[in-house]
Amino acid sequence: MEMLTFFKRWFKPRPGPQEVGDALVRKMLLSLKVTSLDELTCEDTYALLDQFAELVANGEDAACLMPLVKQHLDLCGECYEEYEALEQILVAANKPHPKL
């Protein structure tokens, strides 16, 4: 079965312009808007994520101080999800805990 899929894929003609759907065009254009020569990879961003999240939690202008991290987070959904979850923890950890 896997072999069949492999051959099907192998002999599938390369998509022409008529097969490039609107969703793909739109996605590409939107992502090109924030594309630049200097971009961090997911690994680079992960290495700086704790620092970035702390800046945000402390009310600093993290986007200005670490613009490449901000740019990556704008482009990468998964890194953004991880940043957001981390931020949720930091916000909760800074909240005063009510006495029982």
Binding site: D50, A53, E82, A85, L90
Partner: peptide, 18 residues
């Protein structure tokens, strides 16, 4: 040491969980 140690640990935990 560019962040609190606990923030670094949380970052690892978040990555694993998600």
């Amino acid at each position: 040491g560019r962040s609190q140690f606990t923030t670094w640990v949380y970052k690892i935990a978040v990555h694993i969980a998600l």
